[in-house]
């Protein structure tokens, strides 16, 4: 039985990573080579695409920008989405329904429509072409709030009540009791937010123009020319871009499975 499961899992695994192996293979093609079957299974290998990217100097800056924005936005989201999500799940404050709907509202409007007025606003606020334009509007992600709220609904309230009876302050309850219980959800949130930001293209493209604040996806888009795609460089850059997200995933996925589980809750 166990063997069957392992084989099934491995087959699915092969299916899942195959297109990424293709991407990696292309990233090792000599620049200018074609993508036909014959060429891809040929032993031609070239590290030139990687070398070009790693030595082009500015890539380090774009990488740093992406990392900076990603880390700040992720940290902000973990804190803010947790607090807001907690309020929506546990505090019956007036207007709760309204504000919760506002979360969904923002999610449901296509970004191509709001991007124009948002651009005008950021310009008026003097944030255009600064890190702020990439951070502030995204510091509280509606999906994150929704996730935390839904997650808290699966958790029993018994521990919070017990702490309240023991005379713990609201802050203590939030950070010492609820937050640790939410660890798996916050880990998912961290991965999701970092990932979305790391790959975000349209907003950074429209909201910035200088190289000093350019992010990686915008820089990589430059390899997609008007008439031809520079496949090997684009795929090499994309393969490199996977690494930080993978690192974030590996760090946080442990939190998802090894965090204090609700099983520890004394009923």
């Amino acid at each position: 039985m166990k063997a069957v499961r392992l084989i099934a899992l491995s087959l699915v695994l092969a299916l899942m990573i195959f297109p990424l192996l293709w991407m990696f293979r292309v990233s090792l093609m000599p620049p200018g080579a074609g993508l036909s079957l014959e060429e891809l299974i040929s032993p031609a290998l070239s590290l030139l695409p990687y070398q070009d990217i790693l030595t082009s100097g500015k890539m380090a800056l774009f990488f740093f920008n992406s990392l900076l924005v990603g880390v700040v936005v992720t940290v902000a989201n973990i804190l803010f989405c947790f607090l807001s999500g907690y309020a929506f799940a546990r505090h019956p404050f007036p207007g709760r329904r309204f504000w919760f709907y506002s979360v969904l509202f923002v999610l449901m409007i296509p970004s191509h429509i709001v991007i124009v007025p948002l651009y005008i606003m950021l310009h008026k606020l003097g944030m255009y072409d600064t890190y702020w334009a990439l951070i502030l509007p995204f510091a509280v992600n509606p999906i994150g709030i929704f996730l935390v709220r839904q997650y808290l609904e699966t958790l029993p309230t018994s521990m919070e009540e017990a702490a309240r009876i023991d005379g713990a302050s609201e802050l203590q309850i939030i950070f010492k009791v609820v937050m640790p219980l939410c660890k798996p959800a916050l880990a998912v949130l961290a991965i999701q937010v970092f990932l979305t930001n790391w790959n975000s293209f349209l907003f950074p493209l429209i909201f910035t123009s200088s190289e000093s604040v350019r992010t990686l996806p915008v820089a990589l888009a430059l390899y997609q020319g008007h008439q031809a795609i520079d496949w090997s460089h684009l795929m090499a850059g994309s393969s490199l871009a996977v690494i930080p997200v993978l690192a974030v995933f590996l760090v946080f996925q442990r939190q998802i499975v090894s965090g204090i589980t609700a099983g520890a809750v004394r009923q």
Binding site: L79, S84, A87, P92, F93, R96, V103, E170
Partner: peptide, 9 residues
């Protein structure tokens, strides 16, 4: 508290 906690959003 509810309003305060939800204020980031």
């Amino acid at each position: 508290a509810g309003n305060f906690l939800a204020s980031p959003w």
